[in-house]
Amino acid sequence: MQRRIFNRTLLAGSALAGTGLLSLPVQAQSGFKEGKDYLRLKQPVAVDAPAGQVEVLEFFSYGCIHCFQFEPQVKAWLQQKPAHVSFKRVPVFAEPLQRVYYALEAMGQLEATHDKLFALFFTDSVRPAGNKPEAMADWVAKAGVDRAKFLAAYQSFGVAGKVKRASQLADLYQVEGTPAVGIAGRFLVPGQAERTLPIVNALIAEARKG
């Protein structure tokens, strides 16, 4: 999903956006090419992962159909990712949906609702009736979340701060579409369907070399 298109079309119900493990030098591995298959950031981004860990960020949105389609690949990858990989999702592009993600995280409800929200949006074609907090609460309630507690979290300063940081990360990683994957504060892999995670794995191996 393209950044500029996203905010205009998200809640109109459009199906939007674009994105999939290995180990030798990136160029030698499967012909992955800088500038074509992945981007090397000119300015490295600070990472939150502990020393010895390679940070991997998935930039996504609940309103991106390609993120929805990419999710099974991500789940399979997480089942076998190395212990030295620190993974985190980063919701981007649409502030109401970013707030949904971080509100659910603050409530401890994210794991229980993540798949349900994707399914609501794309399997059941049930989308928020607008951008207002009440509309988002009505939508999330369909996934079994307490509406009043969600609204309190959704409008909290803590959630607002996390949304701001997520948007900053998207800018620093030069994310222009979703899904996309950032690696070690050094690389960005735009979504390329089944090719995405093999490229990510190659870059993880590259990042570990220092």
Rank of each mutant, 00 (worst) to 15 (best):
A148E: 14
A160Y: 01
T19I: 05
E95Y: 00
F59A: 03
K164C: 07
V45I: 06
A184D: 13
D48E: 15
Q79T: 15
S156A: 11
G52R: 09
D48I: 04
G158R: 04
L120S: 01
E176K: 04
G13E: 15
V54F: 03
G158C: 08
S156L: 10
L16E: 15
L11R: 02
H84G: 08
L120Q: 06
V175H: 01
V175I: 09
L39I: 14
Y154V: 09
V85W: 00
G31P: 11
E58Q: 13
F60Q: 05
N201W: 12
Q27E: 15
A193F: 13
S86W: 03
Y173M: 02
R208E: 15
K33C: 01
V45H: 00
P128C: 10
M136P: 06
L172H: 00
A83L: 09
V145C: 11
M107F: 02
Q27D: 13
Q53C: 00
L10M: 14
L57A: 05
P25I: 04
V26P: 00
G63T: 05
Q43T: 15
A17I: 08
V100Q: 03
P91L: 02
R208F: 05
R165N: 09
V145R: 04
A15P: 08
R186V: 06
K33N: 12
Q80Y: 12
A148V: 13
K36L: 06
A137F: 02
C67P: 09
C64Y: 13
G35V: 06
I5M: 04
I204L: 04
A202R: 05
